[in-house]
Design a protein around this nucleic acid. Structure first.
Length: 770
DNA sequence: CAGTACTGTCATTTG
DNA sequence: TGCAAATGACAGTAC
């Protein structure tokens, strides 16, 4: 047996720890209870060995209860427990919370709206922000600028050591130590259980049961009834969670916090976000002060709300999303403003074109916000001059005189429309804002932005019910929420299965006291502790669980008259009968509760009997209520046929059976209901987490799209600026535009054709949207 | 003493 | 249709 125990303990715990380290939630307890009660006994020792009555001091009761009395040194155990809680604290550490604290504090002055987002996998160079626009190509990244960024972050105190993994060496060492200790001790099942709240009810019930059991354990009752209790891994016993763990958790140093932060949201990624992005845009458009306004107006209501780590994470992500949107709007608005001729001088100086020519307007925007354009231009130039691009000669083939023949190719991506649509794009921008007639614009369509805005609004305003319901509907459609279709039956069966191991035991007057005292106050708990007690009566039900809930034998109480601790049964809902009302001729005993208050202590045993037990005894029913209730129909009928019973007795027996079944059905029903609520709660948390993650990814995508557009814009400028006609004169951006051909080449077409293309595409997009 | 939680019971619905 | 289970509603009890 010992070798078997060691085998299972080591194997299961190692597997569990490994799974937990990779984020898989493992509930060993459920598995052991529901599937393999024998294994539980093998691993944990015999039932009697981990019965709580083995311990009679407060320390054991509070924290060392789960220790197997045979083998464990308590101090060693407590040390292990403390370290274990440290690991748990690491596991439960809510990075988003700290993320918010860190970034709101450190990044606030910059007006930055993002920065902690991990790379969403975009192949674009995210290391450079908008301020680096054309210079964002990784090959020619300005190292100086990057360095400056790092220094900037260092000044902000937000830069920690480079991320080298999820766990530091100390963490790994600690886990390794604990691992070995746990293998020796038996790992706590709650290590991997993130939903301690789900067990609180059971824990409380266990405590109540413990109080009812009336042993020395009882004197801790009030203190132990603490909401911050965890269930011990080996025995399911509860202990105060915060005794070692929370203190350690709160004692995490700032460095540890930052390290943990980095492990999840590397700061290195944060630098990718342009700190000067919004501010630069603001400079470019002095009248546009929205980013600063956003920051002040949005951060202020969000900052004080620190109740839930997740809410903060969510709000932070949503805030980032909002500000990202706003920044993009600013970007668009900037271009729009420039379209209107505010910087015509730049246009004329660069290209000698009309003041409202889009190209130069965007160039001015580019130059206003970015400092490293020339470098990128050189890069682009080299690419343009490379043979793969076909060179300028290729482009020149697409002279206006060929334009009519190129109509067929215009169905391809409208290059010009992306960047510098002339009058057309002016109108588009004025009317539809972010809705751009370019292929990328589809990713930024109104629906998407509206969705983000709606969600952000909902979060910003504290998730009022209407908005929350909208979001929930959004998620519920595919969330797969089930009303506990899987969990509840499992838990039910677990209790049945676990009960079966003990129900077969024979009658025992010595141990029946505990089970008998549970009558009426057992609750839903299906933990094996409740079943460890020997059954008091010999009734063997086909559903042994029932014997736990309904010990209604009227015979056994007579054996228990002299068990004084049964006086201290708390919360007895057995509809006690007063002794004076025990009239054999009167089975119906209403209002027994009030009368029972006057009965003598020596009559306490009657309290332990349910109304039906009293009735059965009064009617001299020759078998136990347990049998009446729990026997299968066939056996039940067989039993009835064995005795000569009066009609009143038969009626009472049927009522007892009906009520007993219904009683357990009600208990099961309530348990299911509770489980459903808890599952829903967990589902909501998961969905909120998913939503936050999706928002984060969306922000990343939008950021990448913006950078991509900036790059293409710069490339367009460079290419177009280098085009020359037969006379060596540059083409006028007001008369010509570049477009992608279907074969991937870039062609030069007259503006009028480009405009037509743009309009056509715009109509298509609108139709598609409808 | 009011409020709350827990429990048992009844009536009814559901499978 | 009968039966058992499930469930809403209500009441009793304890805290």
């Amino acid at each position: 047996m010992l070798s078997l125990k060691k085998y299972f303990t080591e194997g299961l715990i190692q597997l569990t720890i490994l799974l937990s380290l990779v984020g898989v939630r493992v509930d060993v307890d459920t598995y052991l209870n529901s599937q393999l009660p024998q294994l539980r006994e093998i691993i944990l020792g015999q039932s009697s060995a981990y019965t709580q009555t083995q311990f009679h001091n407060l320390r054991n009761t509070l924290d060392g209860y789960g220790i197997h009395p045979k083998s464990v040194d308590l101090d060693y155990y407590f040390t292990t427990r403390r370290l274990l809680n440290q690991v748990r604290a690491l596991d439960r550490f809510q990075v988003p919370t700290t993320e918010v604290n860190a970034w709101l504090v450190h990044r606030d002055p910059e007006g930055s709206v993002s920065g902690s987002q991990p790379n969403a996998g975009i192949t674009l160079d995210n290391g450079a922000g908008l301020q680096d626009g054309a210079g964002s190509d990784g090959a020619v990244r300005d190292n100086g600028a990057e360095q400056g960024y790092g220094e900037e972050l260092e000044d902000l105190g937000a830069v920690a050591a480079p991320v080298n993994g999820d766990l530091t060496k100390e963490d790994i060492d600690l886990i390794d130590i604990l691992w070995r200790q746990d293998i020796d001790l038996g790992a706590g099942r709650e290590i991997f259980d993130y939903s301690h709240r789900q067990k609180e009810n059971e824990v409380d019930k266990e405590l109540n049961d413990g109080r009812e059991r009336g042993d020395g354990w009882r004197n801790t009752g009030g203190q132990v009834s603490n909401r911050n209790l965890l269930v011990d891994g080996e025995t399911g016993e509860s202990f105060p969670a915060q005794v070692p763990g929370v203190e350690d958790q709160t004692a995490l140093s700032l460095e540890e916090c930052l390290r943990l932060l980095e492990a999840t949201f590397p700061f290195g990624e944060s630098s990718e976000f342009p700190a000067a992005d919004v501010s630069t845009l603001s400079e470019a458009v002095p009248s546009e002060s929205r980013p600063a306004g956003i920051q002040s107006s949005l951060l202020s209501p969000l900052l004080p709300e620190t109740e839930s780590p997740f809410d903060l994470e969510q709000q932070w992500q949503d805030l980032m999303s909002i500000m990202e949107m706003q920044a993009m709007e600013v970007n668009n608005t900037t271009a729009e403003t420039l379209y209107n001729g505010t910087s015509g001088d730049l246009l004329t100086s660069n290209y000698n074109l009309a003041p409202n020519t889009p190209i130069n307007q965007n160039v001015s925007l580019h130059q206003a916000s970015l400092g490293s354009c020339s470098q990128d231009f050189s890069l682009f130039s080299s690419e343009i001059e490379s043979p793969s691009m076909g060179g300028s000669s290729t482009l020149l083939q697409l002279a206006p005189d060929n334009s009519t023949g190129l109509n067929s190719t215009f169905s391809s991506t409208n290059f010009s429309g992306i960047f510098f649509p002339p009058q057309l794009n002016n109108t588009v921008n004025e009317t539809t804002g972010p809705e751009l007639p370019d292929p990328l614009g589809g990713l930024l369509d109104e629906a998407m932005l509206d969705e983000i805005s709606l969600m952000d609004l909902a979060i910003e305003e504290g998730f009022n019910p209407v908005q929350a319901s909208q979001l929930e509907e959004e998620f519920d459609s595919d969330s797969g929420l089930s009303l506990d279709s899987g969990h509840s039956p499992a838990s039910l069966s677990s209790s049945e299965a676990s009960s079966s191991s003990s129900s077969s035991s024979s009658s025992s007057s010595s141990s029946s006291s505990s089970s008998f005292s549970e009558e009426g106050a057992v609750g839903y708990s299906s933990d094996s502790e409740n079943v460890d007690f020997e059954e008091a009566e010999g009734a063997v039900g086909y559903q042994p669980e029932y014997s736990k809930f309904c010990r209604m034998s009227y015979q056994d109480p007579s054996q228990l008259h002299y068990l004084p601790y049964l006086e201290h049964v708390g919360h007895n809902h057995t509809y006690n009968m007063a002794p004076g009302t025990l009239d054999p001729e009167e089975p119906k005993l209403p209002n027994v509760g009030k009368k029972s208050n006057k009965e003598k202590p020596s009559e306490f045993l009657d309290k332990q009997m349910s109304r039906d037990e009293h009735r059965a005894r009064a009617m001299k029913i020759p078998f136990t209520n347990d049998k009446i209730i729990n026997l299968p129909v066939e056996e039940f009928n067989e039993l009835l046929s064995k005795y000569q019973l009066s009609e009143a007795q038969l009626s009472l027996i049927r009522d007892i059976r009906r009520r007993g079944k219904n009683k357990m059905a009600a208990q099961n029903c309530r348990k299911r209901k509770l489980d459903t609520i808890l599952n829903l709660e967990r589902d909501v948390e998961d969905l909120q987490r998913d939503k936050s993650k999706l928002l984060r990814e969306k922000v990343e995508f939008l950021k990448s799209i913006r950078q991509m557009k900036q790059k293409v814009q710069n490339l367009y400028q460079e290419v177009f600026g280098r085009l020359r006609d037969e006379n060596g004169q540059p083409y006028s951006p007001s008369q010509y535009a570049l477009q992608y051909a279907s074969d991937g080449s870039v062609i030069l077409i007259p503006r009028t054709l480009a405009d037509q293309q743009a309009r056509r595409q715009e109509r298509k997009q609108k139709d598609r949207r409808k």
